[in-house]
Write a protein that binds this DNA or RNA. Structure first.
Length: 626
RNA sequence: GGUCUGGUAGCUCAGUCGGAUUAGAGCAACAGCCUUCUAAGCUGUGGGUCAUGGGUUCGAGUCCCAUCCGGAUCACCA
């Protein structure tokens, strides 16, 4: 049982005995003792002063004395400062806590069973007319991390992607390619497919704006010019042909989309993200119409004189929302309804999470109401994981204005920077092959990028300055990875000098549980409470490290409850910072007292394990050396 | 204008259920520490009216109200 739980229960009993009133669990507030005071766990006694009718200090004194009598873990040295009762917990207790964590390779994770709820997470969801940029990177990293976090909280997770592969914007790229492409292909030009298509999208826009400019110069007003420009009319014609299944248009569309997918897949691979099921809007957009007709028949929606179909949400405090155009074609909302229908046919969804930017808050508010009305049981409680925009110093990224940070460029830059960083190091790694160096640079560069994005609260807008490169020092991914590499270095040295490996523990290092989480990579014999740990007195830094380790479970739970991966990032940073201080002040392998040495080896091993698993939840790898 | 959302150090960000006379990290600046398990590290200095004004209470960066300033959204675009 956790020491906090023991204390909480004891306090409930003691306070009731002392003051004759039942104490709800919530009233017992425990926190980590501030470093400037002696002790490790602090009880806030203010809530009890109303019952005791005594000063906070006296109340704390009374409770403290009883606690000491009743719990062997609470040793002398407790002191009451104002309304705060600081408790000293015995070293033996802390060691046994470490022992428990050590013995549990999936520490912090809830198991996924057949009865676990099924959570579907939609993320990424790109348009196929331009390459991925930094905004998509944030989406992908958040989606992946959220999936890992939900899994760690005992949910079955299905990761899904809805590809927006049809519509006027794709037609623009197609048209531009037909007009000015001269048959260019990814093979002929050596361009990545998504970038090639993106270039034609930009080309379309350039020519289109020129046409509009000329029409305006001839005296047409701008709104009309935007609709009358020959290029846009041609694009619309192409869209109509697409909808009519014109073989030529469809063939071109298929070919160009394939180029884009090949490009996207490269970027996804570099980002380390993947999907269990991919939906294409071209296959789902018609499904929504049926559902809308169904709702119309049930009287949930209504049809206007011009034939368009609307949902009246004024009763919910919202506006009226268009569901089908007057020509019968579907809009964005209709497509999401259709996708929802297909998904529910494919999976027994208990909870649906959409990872989509906060600019679409209104859309998902409406979607939730509509799905609920249409009878989707998860509609009402669907989660819009609404993340903030990535802003540049000059404001938002805009594809058309070319003010975007390209994902592929950024990834390449990060890896090159990481490579340079290790080349510049004073303590360079010797005996390392070119391939290994490149692999380390990839892990570290991606770690820097991913951590940079995931450490900030997903809900908030964040700033990226392309002029300043992403840091590798301080509160960064590489800082955490570096600590892991240091720990692994200690482990390698120790294992090399160890007389005989413990056979009963051999082979644990390669195990993987069903959630795909890596298992402890250590086989260190740990001093136990009744055995070797006897009489060991820990220094404050060792105790606070164990306390931090104990906090991992809470961090995982909170990240899951709040849908907030940044909890995990911040947790890892705090843990690793603490470990680096310990590492600096105390030697592990050169400690002469064998009990202490073994304890510190085990402590280091557990820190390494938790760091690896924690970073794993963020999709960040950790290197053996760097 | 309606709705939603944010405002914490020069910059980027933490701050959990409201808790400790002194609100934390990192970057940038300055000063130290490699003969030592990896210096991508550690230690120190300077830097704050937690947007503003009220309220709630033993106690407010945190909760409530008002105001100021930003952002998003309110399309027969997606």
């Amino acid at each position: 049982m956790k020491i906090e739980t023991k204390i909480t229960e004891a306090v409930q009993v003691i306070v009731e005995e002392l003051y004759g009133q039942p104490v709800p669990e919530k009233m017992v507030q425990l926190q980590e003792t501030r470093p400037e005071f002696e002790g490790q766990i602090t009880l806030v006694v203010f809530p009890f002063t109303k019952m005791s009718h005594k000063a906070p200090e006296a109340t704390a004194q009374e409770i403290g004395e009883r606690l000491k009598e009743q719990l062997p873990e609470v040793i002398s040295g407790f002191n009451a400062v104002k309304g705060f009762l600081n408790l000293c917990i015995s070293s033996a207790c802390w060691i046994s806590i470490l022992q428990e964590i050590y013995a549990n390779p999936t520490y912090g994770f809830k198991p996924v069973t057949d009865d676990s709820p099924l959570v579907m997470i939609e993320y990424s969801s790109p348009n196929t007319n331009k390459p991925l940029h930094l905004g998509h990177v944030r989406n992908n990293l958040l989606g992946w991390a959220l999936a890992k976090v939900m899994e760690a909280n005992g949910n079955k997770v299905v990761k899904t992607n809805i590809v927006n592969d049809r519509g006027i914007h794709i037609c623009k790229s197609m048209l531009a390619w037909l007009k000015w492409g001269n048959g260019e292909t990814p093979e002929s030009s050596g361009k990545k497919g998504d970038h090639l298509i993106g270039d034609y999208y930009v080309a379309f826009d350039k020519h289109y704006r020129e046409e509009v400019r000329q029409l305006v110069a001839q005296g047409m007003d701008e709104e009309q010019a935007k609709q009358e420009a020959p290029l846009i009319k041609e694009a619309h014609e192409m869209l109509v042909k697409w909808e009519q299944n014109d073989p030529e248009v469809r063939a071109l569309w298929r070919k160009m989309n394939e180029w884009v997918y090949a490009g996207f897949n490269e970027t996804y691979k570099a980002l380390g993200v993947s999907f269990d099921k991919i939906y294409y809007e071209s296959e789902t957009y018609l499904e929504g119409k049926e559902k809308v007709e169904e709702g119309l028949a049930k009287g949930l929606f209504y049809r206007r004189d011009d034939g368009s179909v609307w949902a009246d949400l004024t009763g919910e405090g919202l506006d009226e929302k268009l569901l089908l155009r007057s020509d019968g074609t579907s809009v964005y909302m209709t497509q999401d309804i259709g996708t929802a229908k297909l998904r529910f046919q494919d999976y027994p969804i208990d909870k649906m999470i959409y990872v989509v930017g906060n600019e679409q808050n209104y859309h998902f508010q409406v979607l939730s109401i509509l799905l609920d009305k249409l009878g989707f049981k998860w509609g009402k409680d669907l989660v819009h994981f609404s993340y903030g925009m990535v802003e540049l110093p000059n404001g938002k990224m805009k594809s058309r204005e070319g003010t975007v940070v390209d994902a592929d460029d950024l990834i390449a830059t990060m890896i090159a920077d990481a490579r340079q960083m290790s080349a510049d190091k004073v303590n360079k790694l010797e005996d390392i092959t070119e391939d290994e160096a490149q692999e380390i640079a990839r892990i570290v560069g991606m770690g820097a990028l991913k951590y940079f994005i995931l450490k900030v609260d997903a809900r908030k807008n964040m700033l990226f300055n392309p002029e300043e490169s992403i840091d590798f020092n301080g509160n960064t991914g590489p800082f955490i990875q570096y600590t892991y590499a240091r720990i692994r270095s200690i482990m390698r040295k120790w294992e090399a000098t160890r007389p005989t490996p413990n056979p009963s523990l051999a082979g644990r290092g390669t195990d993987t549980n069903q959630a795909g989480l890596s298992v402890a990579e250590h086989s260190t014999p740990l001093p136990t409470r009744e055995g070797q740990g006897e009489g060991l007195v820990l220094v404050p830094k060792e105790i606070s490290l164990i306390q931090h380790l104990q906090g991992f479970e809470a961090a995982v739970r909170q990240a899951g409850q709040d849908y907030n991966p940044s909890c995990i990032a911040n947790y890892c940073y705090e843990l690793v910072k603490e470990y680096n201080q310990f590492y600096h002040d105390f030697s592990v392998l050169k400690e002469e007292d064998e009990k202490k040495r073994l304890f510190r080896i085990a402590l280091s091993a557990v820190v390494g394990q938790v760091v690896k698993n924690g970073m794993g939840l963020l999709g960040i790898e950790v290197p053996e050396r760097m």
